[in-house]
């Protein structure tokens, strides 16, 4: 059994475990007979219907666009800040307490304040996604830059490499595996914050769709939306993981252990 599973490879095992989850869902829902817990089949038939509607597609698209903007802004801001903290003790000492204090705050909790300042539109949502992605990204970039092997820098110095060049040619590539790990955590964070921001500022987006369905007691749609969001998360992570492996194929593997879906 084990060797058969192993032969099937990670893709097949993913399908198997997801299939098992769906079967379990179906059985439990049929046994439970609760309105708020429709069987998998009833929820899944709603998925193509939702995706077939132009309006809901536009909503999901708008969500993803805000997520992309917030993430891109975070990337431009957080990586340089994290690297600077990792290489400069004073910057680290100044910013580390702020980082530590801000990290455990649920970013969605800031949404009301941000809405007071910037309204309920796109700007607020992009900003809160930016905040949510920035913190893990700063944190991991900081650790990556901090852990740069001193001897690598010395080797570069002995070759005559100047400080600015060392930052881009030694510190950045050295820290890249950690930076990308931060990106991956940030990606999950972006999805979470994206949905929660749209739950709070109900105006458009995937989170809005979800809660509208809930308001109208369309439980099949609610679950279908959750399935769609899970699929989006899964696909984004899958794509990102391909990119990440390509970028840091040279690194000694040490982070792959915690990767979901990576290996049986």
């Amino acid at each position: 059994m084990k060797s058969a599973l192993r032969k099937l490879g990670p893709a097949a095992s993913t399908v198997l475990s997801l299939g098992a989850l769906l079967v379990l869902w179906e059985i439990l829902a049929r046994l439970a007979q609760i309105d708020g817990f429709p069987p998998a089949t009833e929820a899944l038939v709603q998925v193509p219907l939702i995706l077939g509607e132009r309006e809901s597609l536009a909503s999901i698209g708008a969500s993803l666009w805000r997520m992309f903007l917030g993430g891109a802004l975070a990337l431009c801001f957080a990586v340089p800040v994290g690297l600077a903290m990792g290489r400069n003790k004073r910057i680290a000492q100044a910013l580390n307490p702020v980082l530590t204090a801000a990290y455990p705050i649920p970013k969605a909790a800031l949404m009301p304040i941000i809405m007071l300042w910037f309204g309920v539109g796109d700007l607020s949502k992009v900003l809160v996604i930016f905040l949510g992605v920035s913190l893990p990204l700063i944190y991991h970039s900081f650790h990556g830059a901090h852990a740069v092997d001193e001897k690598l820098l010395w080797s570069a110095m002995a070759m005559g490499m100047k400080p600015v060049a060392r930052l881009f040619k030694v510190v950045l590539p050295s820290a890249l595996p950690d930076v990308l790990l931060g990106c991956r955590v940030g990606l999950a964070m972006a999805l979470i914050v994206m949905i929660s921001s749209e739950m709070i500022a109900r105006q458009s987006g995937a989170g809005d769709l979800l809660f509208n369905a809930l308001d109208m007691a369309l439980y099949g749609d609610v679950y279908a939306m959750i399935v769609i969001l899970a699929a989006i998360g899964f696909v984004l992570d899958w794509v990102f993981e391909r990119v990440r492996r390509r970028l840091v194929h040279w690194a000694e593997s040490r982070q792959d252990a915690m990767v979901p879906g990576g290996g049986v």
Binding site: D149, L152, W154, S155, M157, M159, P173, W250, A251, E252
Partner: peptide, 27 residues
Amino acid sequence: PGPDRGPVFQEFALFPWKTVLENVMYG
């Protein structure tokens, strides 16, 4: 530091993102 004094470390300190050839060409 200067290129008149070339270090060799116990930990090798190769640039892991560069190939063997690129490492040797780097200096």
